[in-house]
Design a binder for these strands. Sequence first.
DNA 1: GTCTATACTTAGATAGAC
DNA 2: GTCTATCTAAGTATAGAC
Lengths: 175, 175
Amino acid sequence: MADTKQRIQDVARELFARQGYTGTSMADIAGRLSITPAALYYHYKSKADVLDALLAEPLAAYAELAERASVLTPAELLAAFVDFTARANAVIPVVTGDPAVRDLLDERFPRSPKEMMDAVIAALAGPDPDRPALIRAHAAFAVVKEATAAVLAERGLESADRKEILAAARRVLDA
Amino acid sequence: MADTKQRIQDVARELFARQGYTGTSMADIAGRLSITPAALYYHYKSKADVLDALLAEPLAAYAELAERASVLTPAELLAAFVDFTARANAVIPVVTGDPAVRDLLDERFPRSPKEMMDAVIAALAGPDPDRPALIRAHAAFAVVKEATAAVLAERGLESADRKEILAAARRVLDA
DNA sequence: GTCTATACTTAGATAGAC
DNA sequence: GTCTATCTAAGTATAGAC
């Protein structure tokens, strides 16, 4: 990818994460790069396209995970999801926090994050889940997502952290 | 409170929850009430004031919970937090999802939601926590917050649900 | 308490020069 | 590839009539 496009994505990822997608203007992004907003439109035809470029790879990874979910054991799925969360850490709040982003993604990507999350939850809950099983699945999902984010907020995700998170998630899942 | 003010708050709560604070305009709120935006400014002097009015009660409840956190047992704290989450359900995503709201609250309320969350996490982690204890505290917090929200998304929080959520959170906390 | 009209600002986006 | 200049739309907010 051209150097300028890469730099735009890096700045956009940081600003979207800090201020949200709706809360970040094209002028904000351009200012950080010491160019004018108009110059951005040479590289991307809209603000939504900048977001697309930023999310394409993480969303594809999420889709792959959701597709494999039903053939993995819960332990394998939780482990894979910790790693996904760690890699996509910077963009997850952008997707989950801003309703405008959710609507954009519905138009532009085949499967919504909500659908993919539901697939993971369903796999964690097992076949024909009752209400307690669904609650435990949501809880285990939450443990992985939030605990991983909490660790990454102040340091790298070390091997011991990963094991602790997975152990907690498995305790939640096994009633 | 005057009837119109109450109806403005009800509409604002619903729209902020669905579209986010930044993603909701005064015209959106006014339209739902079949009045003009200008009329809103008779009742509230700014959009931020509408948000303030909406969040004052939940934030005060959260502050009280955070203050009592250190003298409650973890089980009591988790139970109180389930109930708080259930009551504040509609506005929690408004606060946590939009960075602009976080900045507004920093200016307008004495203690930020982040600070209060940290107090709860610290109480759950116990004195002089090591890294695993902090991870477990974050995980238990996440279980209560997300599982309660998941249940409320499709039905009321029944007594059995509450017990299931608390049992899961306690399994996370006790290594 | 609500309206019309409007001021002011910011944002997304385009045209055309360089 | 980037700029200047500009358009259009939307949003917050106010003034003053009713």
